[in-house]
Design a protein around this nucleic acid. Structure first.
Lengths: 217, 217
DNA sequence: GTCTATAAATAGATAGAC
DNA sequence: GTCTATCTATTTATAGAC
C-alpha cells in the first residue's frame, strides 16, 4: 500500500467513483466466495481493497447490499454469457443429430466454465446453503433453461427413435450430476487427496459416452 | 420454557451432565446445519437449548470445540453406520453378479440416507466450503472407500468381460454424481420450483439403468 | 472521495453466587 | 449444574474533517 515516499509521491489512488466501486466489488467477490457471507467482514474487504471501511459503506449502504450486488452481477453475467445453445459448434451438432458432439461439447464447456469461475461456484453453493433468494433466481433463470434445452433435444431424438423412452428430466439430471459433481469434487475435496485425476476432455468424453450408450435404443 | 406455576413446580430440567451435553449437541447440529459455523451464535444455541450461554461454555470450552464435536460425531456415525458393502442384499447381489441389483440398491440406499439426514448433508457442504479439516476427513474415511468398493466391483466385471473398459474411477464418479447431485437439488433448490419430481426408487432405477447400459459390453 | 474517530450492537467467553 | 451479570473484542455503520 504505497502512499508517499519523501517528496516522491507515488499516487496509486484516487480512482473515480465507478472504478472504486468496481474494485471493491471484485475484492468482495473473492472474499465472500472464500468465506461466505457471515465469514467475511467489511473491515477485511476494506483492507484488501486498500481503502477505509467508510469507503465501502459509501458505495454500498449495507453489507447485505454489497452481497446482493455481487450475486446480481454474477447471476446476470452467468445468465447472458453465451449460453450453450448459442454456441455455433453445438448448433451444428444439433442440426446434424450428432448426439455425441452435442453432449461432449456441452460437457467440456461446462467443466471449463466451472474451472474458470471457481469463485462463482463457491458463491452459488454458499448462497444456496444460506437460502439467499439470488441462488434460487440463478436456478430459475439459468438451470431451468438447460433442463428445457437438453430435455427438448432428448425428446426429439426419442421421437426419432434414436433414444430409449427415459424421462428426459431424469437424463438431464444424470448428465448435469456427473458434470457438476465432478467440478464440485475438484473444487472442494480433490485438492488434497485426488480420488480421480483426469483432464476435462477425458471426463467429458467418458460422461457423454456413458450417458449416450445408457439411453440409446 | 415452563419453570414454575405457583406451587405446582413443573420440573422440565436438571438433566444430568451427559444428557445436557447431548441435548446441546443436537440443538447445535440443527443450527450449524441451517446457518453454518459463522452464521450461528452461541447465544442462539443456548436459547434453543433452554439454558444460559454459560452452560454451553461449561460443556464445550469454545464454539470451535462444539463444532468439532458435532462433525466428529456425525463423521463417525456416518462412517460406521452400516456401510453399503455390509448390507446383505448388496452382498448377495454382488455374489450373484446381478449388476442391476448392485447399483439400484446402492443408489436407493444413498438417496434415502441423504433424505433422512439432510442436516448432515448441509453440514458437510458448509464445512467443505469452509475447508474444515473434518470435511476432508469424511472424504478420506468414507467416500474414498466407496470409490474402492464400487471401483473394484467394476474392475472385476470388466475382467469377466461384462463391462466395457472405462476407467472405474470415472464410472464411480458418474454414478455418485447422479445420486449426490439429485439429493443436492432436492435439498437446496427443488423445494420451491421443482425441476424434477420423482420418487427415490424411480430415480435410482433410472440412474442404475443409464449407468449400466452405458458401460455394458 | 477519502480518511480518522467513534458510536452502537453483537459476538464469544468468564466470574462468582446459589 | 445452572444462572445472572459482566468483560472484552469484534462488527456493522456513521459523523465530520480535509
Amino acid at each position: 500500500m504505497i502512499k508517499e515516499l519523501g517528496t516522491n509521491e507515488v499516487v496509486t489512488s484516487r480512482m473515480s467513483g465507478d472504478e472504486r466501486r468496481s474494485q471493491i466489488l471484485q475484492v468482495a467477490i473473492r472474499l465472500f466466495s472464500q468465506n461466505g457471507f457471515n465469514g467475511t467482514t467489511t473491515k477485511e474487504i476494506a483492507r484488501m481493497a486498500g481503502v477505509s471501511e467508510a469507503m465501502v459503506f459509501r458505495h454500498f449502504a449495507t453489507k447485505s447490499e454489497l452481497y446482493h450486488a455481487i450475486l446480481d452481477y454474477k447471476v446476470c453475467e452467468g445468465g447472458t454469457k453465451n449460453p450453450p445453445w448459442e454456441n455455433p459448434v453445438m448448433k451444428r451438432a444439433i442440426e446434424e443429430r450428432d448426439d455425441y458432439a452435442v453432449f461432449y461439447n456441452f460437457g467440456v464447456g461446462a467443466l471449463l466454465h466451472h474451472k474458470e469461475d471457481v469463485d462463482f461456484m463457491r458463491l452459488l453453493f454458499y448462497s444456496a446453503l444460506d437460502e439467499h433468494e439470488l441462488s434460487q433466481m440463478f436456478f430459475d433463470q439459468f438451470v431451468s433453461r438447460i433442463y428445457e434445452f437438453i430435455g427438448s433435444y432428448i425428446r426429439q431424438r426419442q421421437a426419432e427413435g434414436a433414444m430409449r423412452e427415459v424421462e428426459p428430466g431424469i437424463v438431464v439430471r444424470a448428465f448435469l450430476g456427473m458434470l457438476i459433481h465432478h467440478s464440485l469434487n475438484n473444487i472442494l475435496w480433490d485438492k488434497k487427496r485426488r480420488l480421480l485425476d483426469v483432464t476435462d476432455e477425458k471426463a467429458a468424453r467418458s460422461f457423454a459416452e456413458i450417458l449416450l450408450n445408457g439411453i440409446k435404443k
